[in-house]
Design a protein around this nucleic acid. Sequence first.
DNA 1: CCATCATGTCTAAACGTTTAGATGGCAGAA
DNA 2: TTCTGCCATCTAAACGTTTAGACATGATGG
Lengths: 319, 319
Amino acid sequence: MTDVARRAGTSTAVVSYVMNDGPRPVAAATRDRVLAAAAELNYRPNRIARALRARRTGVVGLILADASNPYFAALAREIERALADHDTLTLVGNADHSATRQKHLAERFLAAQVDGLVVVSADGGADVAAEAEASGTPAVYVHHRPRTARGPLVPADNDAVHAAVAHLRDHGYARVDFLSGPTDAGPVGRRRRAWTHATAGTGAALLRCGFSRAAAAALTVRLAAADAVPSALVVATDEQAIGVLAGACRAGIAVPDRLALVSLDGAPGSAYTAPALTVTRQPLPAMAERAVDLLLTGASADPDPLSAPLVPRGTCGCP
Amino acid sequence: MTDVARRAGTSTAVVSYVMNDGPRPVAAATRDRVLAAAAELNYRPNRIARALRARRTGVVGLILADASNPYFAALAREIERALADHDTLTLVGNADHSATRQKHLAERFLAAQVDGLVVVSADGGADVAAEAEASGTPAVYVHHRPRTARGPLVPADNDAVHAAVAHLRDHGYARVDFLSGPTDAGPVGRRRRAWTHATAGTGAALLRCGFSRAAAAALTVRLAAADAVPSALVVATDEQAIGVLAGACRAGIAVPDRLALVSLDGAPGSAYTAPALTVTRQPLPAMAERAVDLLLTGASADPDPLSAPLVPRGTCGCP
DNA sequence: CCATCATGTCTAAACGTTTAGATGGCAGAA
DNA sequence: TTCTGCCATCTAAACGTTTAGACATGATGG
């Protein structure tokens, strides 16, 4: 910057004024000289120095449960896009569903002076909230908010279960079972409760397994061996649904004829399974945009819920 | 920091010495007082200020072609992990296969004073190389390196095609076709050439389509309608293979009986398609580790190639 | 007993910006 | 002419660290 100033015959102040269009006006002639000098020297302002002085970094930390999960990956992609639209860079970290690692990431990000934190997790994570709060950094939660956290939450549409159940009923299944996670923590708990509500009195059964494809596949194979495969099943997440599909294929269970399926995430990849998953499609881009808006405007109230439309494809029995 | 120093009755210098274990020794008693003061004040060193002074940020920029592609997402996940192991933060950006956006990201990252750039792309991108070089920031390329770039490349094992072709031959297919990308740019070009080599004189056919699942699915449906579905096919990428599977399912083509398939990426997700994809599994964690090592040690020579083992699963005809 | 040295600490200058306050020149009003 | 005000620019202090050099103290060796 000093070099640019010297070459343009000005002080560093006017260089700054020119680079930032303010806060003071600069004579047109001077501005041109500065711009020319900057171009010739290939000058690029040092954002670190700017951040130190301005106490704003233009960087937001994104804490993910696990970016190798396509649902979270798609969400992360959208969040990065939304942040980029606001001229903000994304520092990303994977917590691998560990609260410890999540807290550790939050600490590192806060030390890096991020302007905000976007936390995308499936459950747990009370510590992050405390860390962020202590340093006055705003945080928003997507998908799940720890019980003790203060920031706004952008939830998925966990009530879309009702549409899923209704759709399977329209296909003639009186009994619609549910595959949930290992516990009722986080959003899948909400989904499970909505399902319980929707199917009260029909004798529908609750299944549980881990969130990985492997776990769901293994469960399905086990059910097939015990001849206990449900006829109609709502699955809490895409990953589990894909696992069920894989298990069904391995065990020779015909989908949708023997086992009809609806998944509740509806990430883009769900359209290309064999057969294609019927889903309630969570509005990932809208969720991302909303989360970023809330973060950057410093809002603290929860936004209106977004809704996930049902997308009929192959696994429910639609042609 | 000033507050900590005051509370501990020292200068900021010894606070720094304590926080960093050096470069000067500190008396044990003083160290304890500093640590106590830091804990009481909940002091967290400001990495921005440190970065400004030390001219090192501890942040690396990761430029991805597209994080919503599970193969790249898995690679990105591993790279983030490898960087975290070296106590380095990851700034991430998606270029969406656009050279312009890729260059733009590089500029932003360099302005943010990243210590290095990891570029994961499928083709193109000469600009990034120039940007990085101009500012003396090291860059490594994973998967693909633009023709004009200087940094080291950590390639996928593009010669694994030979094993794929051989495996399908062992299943009795004399003719093994290949599904490539729309052009021969980037690593898929290498794969295509290796396939040409491996199948010379057998009359095998070359197919082309876009890299998306949608494109591959559409192609497969089209081929089925024309009754031109190959018996044995090596597919350049997982995404295309998943698309082929989806298309085959839609068109009623039996896999592997009517169409046997091997994909050349082998990301973790490929194990849970229906049927499960036979793949050559690219060693993603090893690639990531190597890329990070090269970047952090400032190496410039290309490393020894890593090799991708063939993983027989369902789509080739193995039980 | 003085010179030498090691040890622990302090002082202050950097790092590259931003921006409030000071300054100087020039136009228009009195 | 002198005053007022505006405009463009400069000066210098901050932002929160790191670290080389200066300094004080006490121990060691001749």
